[in-house]
C-alpha cells in the first residue's frame, strides 16, 4: 500500500504467462484505458494489435536519414574530387562515381544505423535510470520470467479501487500500488 507522503504512480498487476497477459491487454484496451503498458521479458507476438498500437515510425526515420547520408556523401566526394582538390589518378575522370560507390554506401549505412539505434532510444525515452516502477520489488522479475501490466495514475479513467478490481477480474494474480518514492 501507498506510503504516506508519496504519490501513487499507478498500479502494477502480475499475470501468469504470455496468454493471460495478451488477453488482459486486449480487454484493457477495449475498456478504453490509455496510459498502460505490458511488461514482459521478451516481445510477445500479437501484443501490438492487442494494445491497438500502430507500427513504429522508426522505418521512415531511418529511410530519411539514409537518403540524406547518401546524398551528403555523394556531394562530399564530388566536392573533394572535382572542386576542392582535383587530381587525375590512373586516368580516370575527376567525378568517377563508380569508385565513390563504396564510401557513399558505407556512410549511408552508418548514418542509418545511428538513426535506428538512437532514434529507438529517443522514442523510448531512454536512458532513464530512475523510474517509479523500479520501486516495486516484484517488478524486478519482468526481466526474468514475470509478466506485468502497469497502469498509470495519470490515465483519465484511473481509480485505484476500480482499476484493482478490474485487473483482478481480467486475470491478474497479484495487484499492487506503485509509488513515486
Amino acid at each position: 500500500m501507498a506510503k504516506i507522503g508519496s504519490r501513487a504512480y499507478g498500479v502494477l498487476a502480475e499475470f501468469s504467462g504470455t496468454g493471460p497477459l495478451l488477453s488482459a491487454a486486449k480487454k484493457i484496451h477495449e475498456a478504453g484505458y490509455k496510459k498502460y503498458d505490458c511488461h514482459s521479458p521478451f516481445p510477445i507476438h500479437g501484443m501490438d494489435q492487442a494494445m491497438g498500437m500502430k507500427r513504429s515510425p522508426i522505418g521512415y526515420m531511418v529511410g530519411f536519414t539514409g537518403a540524406c547520408g547518401l546524398l551528403g556523401m555523394l556531394y562530399l566526394t564530388y566536392w573533394v574530387s572535382v572542386v576542392e582538390y582535383p587530381l587525375v589518378i590512373s586516368g580516370k575522370p575527376l567525378f568517377s562515381w563508380q569508385a565513390y560507390v563504396p564510401p557513399v554506401f558505407a556512410i549511408t549505412i552508418l548514418v542509418s544505423a545511428f538513426m535506428a539505434t538512437f532514434g529507438m532510444l529517443v522514442l523510448n525515452k531512454l536512458p532513464r535510470f530512475n523510474h517509479p516502477l523500479f520501486n516495486s520489488e516484484s517488478f524486478k522479475r519482468f526481466s526474468d520470467g514475470g509478466f506485468f501490466i502497469s497502469l498509470e495514475a495519470g490515465d483519465p479513467k484511473y481509480d485505484e479501487v476500480k482499476v484493482t478490481e478490474f485487473l483482478k477480474s481480467i486475470g491478474a494474480t497479484k495487484v499492487e500500488v506503485v509509488t513515486d518514492e
Binding site: 491487454a25 503498458d37 505490458c38 511488461h39 514482459s40 521479458p41 516481445p43 510477445i44 501484443m47 501490438d48 494494445m51 498500437m53 507500427r55 513504429s56 522508426i58 532514434g119 529507438m120 522514442l123 523510448n124 531512454l126 523510474h131 516502477l133 519482468f142 526481466s143 502497469s150
Partner: peptide, 9 residues
Amino acid sequence: RGGNRQWRH
C-alpha cells in the same frame, strides 16, 4: 523496462 511500448520500437 520491457514494456510493449518499448518493445515495439
